[in-house]
Amino acid sequence: MNSISVFAPATVANVACGFDIFGFAVANPGDKITLTVRDEPGVRITDIIGDEGRLPRETARNTAGIAIQTYLHHIGRTDVGLDVVLHKQMPLGSGLGSSAASAVAGVFAINELLGRPLPTMKLLPFAMEGERLACGSAHADNVAPSLLGGFVVIRSYHPLDVIRIDTPAILFCTLVHPDIEVNTKDARFILKNEVSLKNTIIQMGNVAGLIAGLMKPDYDLISRSLVDVIIEPVRSILIPEFNEAKQAALDNGALGCSISGSGPSMFALSRDAQTAERVGAAMQQAFLSVGVTSEAYVSEINREGPKVLTSVPVLS
């Protein structure tokens, strides 16, 4: 039986100052997908595990399903029949790129199953269709790092221009997900349509500084540049105890701390694993002080991207 299982990682998008243009992948958590070939053409989602029945099983309404379907139409393989099982291994609406990981896992898996007719970079537009379905906008700051691994910059959407940049060999990310949910569409709706020239200049300086700090590498420059004066002040009101959790991260040695994606998860970057663990515990305690429980994940930046979990018999 032709079958493949693939893991795709969670991601941190925006990365403080880089709204819609920065993102990086983490080692944990992530989503897993299993594709099994069947005789009847078409993509069928047979099960979703870990979503508490909340995600649609209809292929055209599911981020993984639409990504796979769009890919198959593009390469002219509508003759292929697939049963899809999706294992959700991260919270929904968490700001960790849950919908992106599912779409990336799906399109990466079918490309592997078919013998890699397209290079990995060419899979990006199909994964972005999953994001369009999830939040109404085909943004790439989650799907690109999940697909390519590492830290990515989306220089342009028209035309799509994605750059993967070097990061320090030792750089740890702490993710803390408070047990509340923020809808991505709602988090975009509250943003202002206009930004002052003063804040634009500050933000541009931080964007440039963060890229330079990551590539040099210069930890002090990274720390000074992990500042968001445009998006964070607006979205942070959706996260209870945000300021206290952020301050706890900084007090315990984090280089910087901000919202992961549209929230409610928060991320912090640190120079070593011990600091990253301490930062996570302090942030969790800040949330717990107001009765909000949370999950914490610590990992280095994931430079690998999706990972095949089973052997891959190529489908002719």
Rank of each mutant, 00 (worst) to 15 (best):
Arg188Leu: 05
Asp166Glu: 13
Pro145Thr: 04
Ile21His: 07
Asp251Cys: 04
Lys246Ser: 09
Val207Tyr: 06
Arg271Tyr: 09
Phe267Gly: 00
Leu255Gly: 01
Ala16Gln: 07
Ile4His: 09
Gly130Asn: 07
Gln284Thr: 06
Ser102Val: 01
Ala67Thr: 08
Ser260Phe: 09
Leu309Thr: 12
Gln89Ala: 12
Pro119Val: 15
Ala245Leu: 04
Ile180Pro: 01
Ser225Cys: 09
Gly130His: 05
Thr11Ile: 12
Ala25Glu: 04
Ile237Glu: 12
Lys216Glu: 14
Val162Thr: 12
Ala276Lys: 00
Pro117Ile: 14
Val15Thr: 04
Leu124Lys: 07
Val104Met: 12
Ile190Ala: 09
Asp161Ile: 11
Gly280Glu: 02
Ala25Thr: 05
Glu40Trp: 01
Pro56Phe: 06
Ala100Leu: 03
Ile165Asp: 07
Val143Glu: 03
Ala144Met: 08
Ile170Asn: 14
Asn111Asp: 14
Ser223His: 10
Asp141Val: 03
Met90Glu: 03
Thr275Gly: 05
Ser260Trp: 03
Val84Ser: 01
Gly291Glu: 01
Ser311Asn: 13
Ile301Met: 05
Ala64Gln: 08
Ile110Ala: 07
Ile45Pro: 04
Arg44Asn: 09
Lys246Arg: 15
Pro233Asn: 12
Gly205Met: 13
Met90Asn: 04
Ile68Met: 08
Thr310Trp: 11
Ala273Trp: 02
Ala25Asp: 08
Ile222Asp: 05
Ser265Val: 06
Val290Tyr: 10
Gly136Tyr: 14
Lys198His: 12
Thr59Pro: 00
Gly213Gln: 12
Phe287Cys: 03
Gly18Asn: 08
Asp220Arg: 15
Ala8Phe: 04
Arg132Asn: 15
Ile165Asn: 10
Phe7His: 02
